[in-house]
Design a protein around this nucleic acid. Structure first.
Lengths: 358, 358
DNA sequence: TTGTAGGCGTTATCAA
DNA sequence: TTGATAACGCCTACAA
């Protein structure tokens, strides 16, 4: 009944007691759901301030059957593109009064499923998922419970779901065709791990498909996977260049990997793009500032996730259930990391470097 | 009573009904709080699976008076150092079964206070705050309600709170003394906005103090603030260099700003460190890979926040209330972006660049 | 080992 | 305009 000095969590009842009104009136005064006399309102406001009352969201959503929260599952926060993404997503939620519940899957399908269950248990009113390769079981769980959900960064929507994004496969062909148009004929492909990452997988497929379209023989195609770190990209680049010094360009599955390649190439004394051209994917902040600035595919993560949030809120309000897929624009940004190839330059230069190291 | 095919949120009662036991037994079977016959346990497990039952966390924490969540307020996710930080923080929480509730203040004190209130209303059992310059009102609210909280990235702890971090002021002196030891006498200082950012403010003070210690006359000291973006750092660098072409080194308040300075300097045709030395602060992933690699202060964000999480969990368990401040190690990392100065090189070179642009 | 019943903090219904 | 009361979904004495 009385508040001890420490450890007290004042309830609506404490407020009612202090204000000399009923809990119902306090609730009404606080939520403005019904008319309350200004006298009561003032008494309540004062009591709230005095006690430092903060309503219990759990109890509240129990009654309201809505929590005011939206969940999102991304693979990781380590890649800048997802930080950007969350920035855009939050931006949209903020203006609608929703609170973001963020969860990371660490590129693990089982973790992802657990995180979704976790979000459900916290009563989220909608969920945004990264990509479209989730556990079917978890998707039908969402369906069964009537919780709206969305696949982002993809144009696929398994199990008749909704999606906001673009065709990773097609988009990944853009840099390949660009390189080919510049005259490159020996192109290496370096993407992030494709395990549990359907975006990376699609990009790889898209790049390989584009190469074949350009009359590449499948056997000529050089591709590798690496971790999503600069470190890993650097060593993968080295291994690739050692095995295939004749390549004149490398197309990367994302910008972080491309940064690693550019930095390692220059570290080796190669000139980019003079000795080797490099392309990325995402267009994160640093890419336009890098030396040389990076030719890449702009996917506009922040904007895409902003749109995703809007779509999700729409699904929650049961409006515009129409379009299954919302397209997010994608654009090839040509900068300084690509140019016409010099024939066999890398091969020669690499030999120099090797001998100087010996 | 019956579950409609869609939109159903099965409750513990539905499970009990299907399993043919009481809700109490279901609860016990699920939480393992008391002995349950293996027959009942199996029936319950089956029913849970069939129904896709997921307990309501809100209702649960209402009874348990604990939510299993920890809150954290950081300024933004845009700066990589905070993504790293959250990675470390989450890593620690995961192994303790706690769930992270993340909120961003956007460097706004009022937003920060609101986010804290938000976290409280969601029943977090502890809160980690960035820096030590919060609203006093919000801190006493936390105190009054007996919710353990922590200041991270600082050695200050206002209102007898706890902190995990380091002395930003002292740490920021490290690169200055390093530059001075190399022979630099005209050093520019470029930090992030100090408004609502006590870390940035302390670093600025620390740098200026170090300069004075090195017998700088206050009037000689050149310093500027900029936004936390590469773009902003680049233009601030230009403006600084235009006004004071005699400087031979720039000490930056964080690595992102330093990256901007290095890239812009090279963009202008300056050589780093030959024409100008640059230092950063944080040691984010890219810094060791940058060309040239960046001399900076390693604060080990991920590790620091991991420790912070441990400390916070300790406070929740009422153990080791002893040390008010937990020190996190800080270390000057000397790389390739700093060297002895060439006298007046920049001034001359700058004139070349200017005339060639004219 | 199990079931019944009461209550966690909130809001909605219904009378007054 | 207000107040008593019954839920919301869950857990935990207490009794059986």
């Amino acid at each position: 009944m009385t508040n001890s000095i420490t450890g007290s969590q004042p309830t609506i009842e404490d407020v009612a007691l202090l204000a000399g009104v009923s809990t119902a009136t306090v609730s009404r005064a606080l939520n403005g759901t019904s008319n309350v006399s200004s006298v009561s309102k003032h008494k309540v406001d004062l009591a709230v301030k005095t006690l430092g009352f903060i309503p219990n969201a759990g109890a509240r959503s129990l009654m309201l059957r809505r929590s005011g929260t939206i969940g999102v599952v991304i693979p990781t926060l380590s890649n800048t593109v997802f930080s950007q993404a969350m920035h855009g997503f939050q931006q949209c939620l903020d203006k609608s009064g929703y609170q973001l519940l963020l969860a990371c899957s660490n590129y693990n399908k089982e973790t992802e499923a657990n995180q979704v269950r976790n979000l459900i248990s916290r009563g989220v009113e909608g969920i945004a998922l990264t990509g479209g390769s989730q556990n079917r079981e978890i998707l039908s769980l969402l369906k069964q419970r009537g919780i709206p959900y969305l696949h982002v960064v993809t144009h696929r929507s398994p199990m008749k779901g909704y999606s906001v994004g673009f065709d990773n496969c097609k988009a990944a062909g853009l840099p390949i065709h660009h390189l080919f148009a510049l005259g490159h004929r020996k192109i290496g492909v370096l993407v992030g791990n494709i395990k549990n990452n359907d975006r990376s997988k699609s990009r790889l497929h898209g790049m390989l498909a584009a190469l074949q379209q350009e009359n590449y023989h499948p056997l000529e195609i050089v591709h590798r996977e690496c971790d999503y770190s600069i470190e890993s990209a650097r060593s993968s680049f080295m291994s690739m260049i050692r095995s295939f010094p004749e390549i004149t360009a490398i197309a990367c599955g994302n910008d972080v990997i491309a940064h690693g390649v550019v930095l390692q190439a220059r570290h080796c004394g190669f000139s980019v793009p003079r000795d080797i051209s490099v392309t990325g994917f995402d267009d994160i902040e640093l890419s336009e500032h890098l030396l040389p600035s990076l030719t890449t595919v702009r996917t506009n993560a922040a904007e895409m996730w902003f749109i995703a949030a809007e779509k999700l809120l729409g699904l929650i309000d049961k409006e515009g259930l129409g379009t299954r897929h919302t397209k997010s624009p994608v654009q090839l940004i040509i900068r300084d990391s690509t140019s016409r190839p010099r024939s066999h330059s890398l091969k020669l230069k690499f030999k120099e470097v090797q001998s100087s190291h010996a």
